[in-house]
Every structure is written in structure tokens, then in C-alpha cells.
Design a protein around this nucleic acid. Structure first.
Lengths: 111, 111
DNA sequence: TGACCATATAGCTATTTAATTATATAAGCA
DNA sequence: TGCTTATATAATTAAATAGCTATATGGTCA
């Protein structure tokens, strides 16, 4: 939830790749592990997922034997837009646009 | 210049703080060191600056005895907006806005 | 209950990171 | 030239990260 945790979570290429997968659709841990087959072990992915969850960037839901993960778009775009607004003053317009996007998303998929 | 380097550069709180300073005005290395007095040594700051430069997020110019640093807003906002567009499909509108902002910035401060 | 999935945790190791102090480089000035 | 200031680099060390294998946890199903 803090900027520290979010940016640290984003500093890993595998974790950014997981976020990209989740941006298309929710997935189970096992499905994500498959995408990294012969590249990384199951426990490694599990760790990455817990880091992402801890940063507040993904949600997790146990359904029976499986654990489903999904992207929390608001948290991600919110954090980056906030940072951009702070550090790229000339990009201020982003802010207004972000508020709109956030509202649109909130209406679609309440967390 | 790569996403890897940029996100790794952004993963450090002191480095993000340096970027925030530079978003207000260009500074010399020494001025930046002062802001971190009794928190971090001069060589530590020097290293952070070289990581930021290496990621393409700041420029550096030697003027006499001093070295001036400044933010490369285009690189920073470009990278983050590109990432947002990839990972937060519902934030697509950002893209159009970003193109506008980039053009505005390019006209103001060519790299 | 007992075997079998799916996922998480433990314990370990190698690598990377971030800081420090000490020193080098190079510009400015007496 | 020789001193001082500004910045970078080197060498070292402590702590954090990322991966692995092995194992635990907890749900499902016969």
C-alpha cells in the first residue's frame, strides 16, 4: 500500500510480467506457474505473488483447492499517476484523467 | 533506457526523492548532497545519481567545478505511461494525453 | 480415513545492493 | 605551482533479494 512497497514490487521483471498477465484476466496461482515453466519454480512464483499482494497490487481469493489472483488496477494506476503528478509537474493533466479512469473502474469492479 | 533499469532506479526511496527535487529545478551534485546531510554520505548520493543517469532519467552536465543534474521528464513519464497502457488497459486514455504532454514538453525543453 | 492435488512456507545459498571510509581526479584560485 | 573545493571511484562490509529443494498445509475425492 505504501509507495515504497509498490515501487519495490514493480522493480522485478517477473513481477511486472505477472501483472501484465493479470491485466488480461484473473488467473490461479497454478496457471501463472505454468507461464513460467522451465524458467522459475512454483515456490518462486508463490513468493512473487505474495510480494505483489503485500504491495496491494493484486487481490487473492481461495476457491476450493485453487487460489485466484487478479490485478487491482486502481491501486497500480493510482500510485503511478500520483507519482507522475508529483515528479512530472508538466504532466499534471494526468491527474484529472486519472480521477475519471478511477471512477470508471470503481463502477465496473469494486474491490 | 530499458524498462528494467528505469523500474530498478525507481525502486529506491532516496532516488525518488532526488527525482522530486529535480522536478522543481536543476541542481548541482553538492546541492543534492546537502539535502541528504546527516542521512547519507556524498559518495552514496553520487552513486544514486549515476544510477539515475544510467537509467536515462536525469541528464548531467559539468560546468566548471560543479556537475549539474536535471530531470528528463519525457523519459520518466514516457516509461510510466507506456507501462500503464500495457498493464492497465482501462487507463488507455492516458496514452492520448501522454502524447500531448510529450509534445508540449519537447517544445519546451529538448533533450 | 488415506492418497492426491494446489499452494505456501522453511531453510539454505549465491548474488546483488547500499552504505561506509579512504582516495583519486580535476577545476579554480592564491 | 601548490592548496582547496567538488565530485567520482575503489575497496570493503552488512544486509537484502531471489532462487532452489524439501516439506508443510489444507482442500478434494475415492
Amino acid at each position: 500500500m505504501t509507495a515504497d512497497k509498490i515501487f519495490e514490487a514493480l522493480s522485478s521483471a517477473p513481477r511486472r510480467r505477472i501483472l501484465a498477465y493479470l491485466s488480461k484476466t484473473d488467473m490461479t496461482a497454478g496457471e501463472i506457474v505454468e507461464r513460467f515453466a522451465d524458467m522459475m519454480s512454483q515456490p518462486a512464483i508463490s513468493k512473487h505473488l505474495s510480494i505483489l499482494e503485500n504491495a496491494g497490487l493484486v487481490w487473492r481469493e481461495k476457491r476450493g483447492q485453487n487460489v485466484h489472483y487478479g490485478l487491482k488496477e486502481d491501486a497500480l494506476s493510482g500510485a503511478l499517476v500520483h507519482f507522475l503528478a508529483e515528479v512530472c509537474p508538466r504532466s499534471r493533466p494526468f491527474r484529472k484523467e486519472s480521477a475519471t479512469a478511477a471512477r470508471r473502474k470503481a463502477a465496473t469492479k469494486p474491490e
